[in-house]
Write a protein that binds this DNA or RNA. Structure first.
Lengths: 261, 261
DNA sequence: AAGTGGTCTAGACCACTCG
DNA sequence: GAGTGGTCTAGACCACTTC
């Protein structure tokens, strides 16, 4: 049956163990091609053409492309095509101080008062049916969305906040952040794990639901409690999270529009 | 049980957008089932049976399982089956001080003198064809492999090391680490990104090649240079990397009797 | 030998973008 | 409407583990 396999046996090769999966070999070949023959932003031939050229089924070709996209080498967009991705962006994931403090690079999007997921409520030490402020923020670089954040703030952490302060939207988000600064931040901790984008995050990140994301969970401690909890989802294909002293200090151009209005 | 498909066709509703992909819906259903009806370690029905039960092709079912494995909810092993995964392990990825310093949780495996990848050579500020010490180490928890590390140490960083010290294997690895401690560590920085396991790492991590991993790159600075570089690959499905002050603090995981059949 | 997940195929149709 | 990537199918065979 499979005379296709015949091509694999070049001469008297001692293949020792594994017959390498086709998609794996394909990925290697494509990687080398990307390194040597393609420029960033260049569009590749479409999937059907590539599959034909390599003599594999489209599904197999896609398995290779999938991995390359995961590794940040390619970018695929439905209805458009597959392009060579630029190197990953170094983004500082180490934030010291409260969200919304001066120098913070996140943009408030909106804010709602709602019951958080059970896991969040537990981490906040709150009742599972107690509503908290949920601030949405986003982070962009060079016009491209990098990350989406949900910041959970118990009402107890911002007691002075009144409904009159700001009815909704970004204004309300800013109000919550402003109130947060009044607390004394004792410490914080962070965790990074792999996740897949929920539908809403995916939309904000310009990806399809299920896209791989790096989830950075930060707990903020004040007054002996967990005063706030942040869950930031970064595009795993385009982002490289930096921590520590001399991390990604570069790429900071002046940001003139950062005055309170 | 889900004959939820029917809901999509309700009358002339302006459901606006999305026909939810089957695998996505499937993933949701399975997630709920895992939360409510399965215990950690329990084996699921095999893929053909599950696909039949849900009335989808096996490939579609697999797409859902793949995501659940990515999220650390499932563990699949060829020739064995699919089991419910335990919660992710919190591993401290913040290491202060030299590799091999007291308290370090890594186990030396072996050591070789070889030319590193070009990117590593560049980061070390060394010639691309200059061999460096490459120390392999591994990290395990509860008997399960968590991470594999390649530590690149230029010969200039360990000038006192002689071939006589230790010919090869773990002993030589320990010798290199011991010599490292003589340098004064000025600073270090870290970066985390998503990658896929190379063949050798995959083997050590008990995964298939291409498995998703969190790659933690650490640069160690001493004497005004980059004195060493570490690339640690953590299993993305089972690990959650923690940083920051109170990293070791346990989460309130109230998991009361959650057993069912 | 039996049963599992992993790879692969050759189709089909759908959702989306863009000229 | 043409062209792209995204989803889905119904098969087949392979590599691996276990009995």
């Amino acid at each position: 049956m499979g005379t296709l396999q015949a091509e694999n046996r070049v001469g008297t090769l001692r293949l020792e163990t594994v017959p390498e999966p086709k998609y794996w070999h394909l990925k290697t070949v494509l990687t080398e091609a990307l390194d040597s023959e393609f420029a960033v932003g260049e569009v590749l031939p479409n999937e059907r053409a590539l599959a034909a050229r390599f003599g594999v089924a489209r599904a197999t070709l896609r398995q290779a492309l999938e991995q390359l996209e995961l590794e940040g080498r390619l970018q695929r967009r439905r209805g458009v095509g597959t392009t060579v991705a630029p190197p990953r962006v170094d983004v500082g994931a180490e934030r010291n101080g409260w969200p919304g403090a001066p120098g913070d690079t996140w943009n408030p999007v909106d804010c709602a008062l709602a019951v958080p997921p059970a896991a969040v409520a537990d981490a906040l030490g709150a009742d599972r049916d107690e509503p908290v402020h949920i601030v949405r923020r986003s982070r962009v670089s060079h016009g491209r969305p990098l990350a989406a954040e949900l910041l959970y703030v118990p009402q107890a952490s911002v007691p002075e906040l009144t409904a009159i302060d700001a009815p909704s939207g970004p204004a309300r988000a800013r109000a919550v952040l402003r109130e947060l600064q009044h607390l004394e931040l004792e410490s914080q901790d962070r965790a990074v794990e792999l996740g897949s984008a929920r539908a809403d995050d995916a939309k904000e990140l310009d990806r399809l639901p299920g896209a791989p994301v790096l989830v950075v969970t930060t707990r903020f401690f004040a007054g002996g409690r967990t005063a706030a909890l942040s869950a930031a989802t970064y595009r795993a294909d385009t982002c490289r999270l930096t921590f520590g002293a001399s991390g990604g200090v570069e790429i900071h151009h002046d940001d003139p529009a950062r005055r309170a209005s």
